[in-house]
């Protein structure tokens, strides 16, 4: 439960919590962009030499690998945020 005090004024800990969340989101979105726009798209010509069973790495990321990465990212975020919520006593 959020008490009245917390609703009106942010404490140092609140700022820390939000900053930690923003850092986590930034990291996740960097990986998100790297596997899809990077490996799957713009960097594909440079990765042609690496192949996964008949597909070049970029092609495989564009059609399979990006999705697997997205999945891990979302569950990683959920796991990290649950931990963070607990640490800061913010579970609802």
């Amino acid at each position: 439960m959020v008490d009245k005090q917390k609703q009106n004024e942010l404490t140092q800990r609140d700022h820390e919590y939000w900053a930690a969340n923003l850092r986590l989101i930034t990291g996740i979105l960097i990986i998100w962009a790297t596997v899809s726009y990077g490996f799957g798209l713009l960097l594909r010509p440079y990765l042609m030499g690496i192949s996964i069973g008949g597909a070049d790495l970029g092609f495989w990321f564009a059609q399979q690998g990006a999705i697997f990465t997205f999945l891990s990212l979302i569950f990683f975020y959920g796991y990290k945020m649950n931990k963070l919520d607990k640490e800061y006593g913010l579970e609802d």
């Binding site: 989101i25 996740i28 979105l29 998100w32 899809s36 990006a66 997205f70 990212l73 979302i74």
Partner: peptide, 10 residues
């Protein structure tokens, strides 16, 4: 599929 990362985090 990638839109769901945006949904989950943002």
């Amino acid at each position: 599929t990638g839109g769901y990362v945006l949904l989950a985090t943002l």
